[in-house]
């Protein structure tokens, strides 16, 4: 669905040249759900804008939905749906008018546009909003209308730029219900950008971590976490049991660290598949007569992955 080779984009700002995207190689297959994750200014949106043909690349190539973005930008635009960060629907317009006009912009005839608009109002819980002025809709309703506008021509590939920024948790969950249902029903390929870690973690099947205009990791959230950070078990034991505990831990995991803690010494170590390893380790320790005073399992988040890859926390970056 998407194939890029060494895609770059530089901006001239005054005398400075800013390299926003520095050589992105990316392949997205049909039906995938991919999230671009990275701090603000990492190049996620610039990449998305090049893939949607809104911004011509400085160098490199990109084929999107079978069409080259530089050679035929209008061809790309007619085959994809794009939902931007801000309100897509014009504030001074009525809901129904915007839907019909959007259909016309994509070349649907009136009958088809009407049928699609009706259908989408139903799927996106916007019935009864037909004649409402867009500016009078709530934030969640506006967002759902944007999705309806992006889907009017039934694109096989949908791009969403920071779809849930500024939404409350309830509306965000609701938005995801709609996105996931769309995928289930029509097999739509979905590419989105986000700086919400939890969102990329729980929703996307594939996470492409972008930093300083480059892809620094690309895998499922689970593999990324397992490979880049790993689960850590911490057991706290008394001084008497420490030598035995050390032996057991050395067998069970890697990257062992010790710190003194309440109730003795806290030994932490990295394991694969923490939930399985934890009871096993505790059992072995018990068998050898070690009294475990406390045990915790910490599973990594994508932030740990990002921290491990870049030495920076994504949370700090997102707030800046």
């Amino acid at each position: 669905m998407i194939h890029t080779q060494q895609l770059t984009r530089t901006f001239e700002s005054g005398k400075e040249t800013v390299e926003a995207v520095r050589g992105i190689d990316l392949d997205v297959a049909e039906g995938e759900l991919v999230a671009f994750l990275g701090p603000n200014g990492a190049g996620k949106s610039t990449t998305l804008r090049m893939l949607t043909s809104l911004l011509p690349p400085t160098s490199g190539t990109a084929t999107v939905a079978g069409v080259d973005v530089t050679a035929d930008p209008a061809g790309v635009r007619s085959r994809i749906g794009y939902i931007g960060q801000k309100d897509g629907a014009g504030h001074n317009y009525r809901v129904w008018d915007e839907l019909l006009m959007q259909g016309r912009f994509y070349g649907l005839d009136k009958q088809r546009a009407t049928a699609r608009a009706d259908e989408l109002l139903g799927t996106l819980d916007l019935e009864g909003m037909k004649m409402r002025k867009v500016s009078t809709l709530s934030g969640g309703q506006k967002r759902r209308l944007d999705i309806a506008l992006g889907l009017i021509h039934e694109p096989a590939l949908l791009f969403l730029d920071e779809p849930s920024t500024g939404m409350d948790p309830q509306n965000r969950a609701n938005l995801w219900d709609h996105i996931l249902r769309l995928r289930e029903e029509f097999g739509t390929t979905i590419v989105l950008t986000t700086h919400y870690l939890e969102e990329a973690d729980t929703m996307a099947e594939r996470v492409v971590v972008i930093d300083h205009g480059r892809i620094i990791a690309d895998d499922t959230a689970q593999s990324l976490k397992a490979e880049q950070a790993g689960d850590r078990i911490t057991v706290t034991v008394g001084a008497d049991d420490l030598p035995t505990a050390r032996e057991v831990v050395a067998q069970a995991g890697t990257e062992v660290q010790e710190v003194s803690a309440d109730g003795g010494t806290a030994i932490s170590f990295r394991v694969d598949a923490g939930p399985v390893a934890l009871p096993r380790v505790l059992h072995t320790l018990g068998d050898k007569g070690v009294a475990v005073n406390a045990a915790t399992l910490k599973q990594p988040t994508l932030d740990d992955v990002f921290l491990n890859l870049t030495g920076r926390s994504l949370r700090e970056g997102a707030e800046a």
């Binding site: 949607t52 931007g84 309100d87 504030h91 912009f105």
Partner: peptide
């Protein structure tokens, strides 16, 4: 300018309109 600000312009730019 109003539609650039609200975002409608970007949505229309993303359509295949000449």
């Amino acid at each position: 300018q109003f539609e650039i600000m609200t975002g409608a312009f970007e949505r229309i730019l993303a359509t295949p309109l000449a």
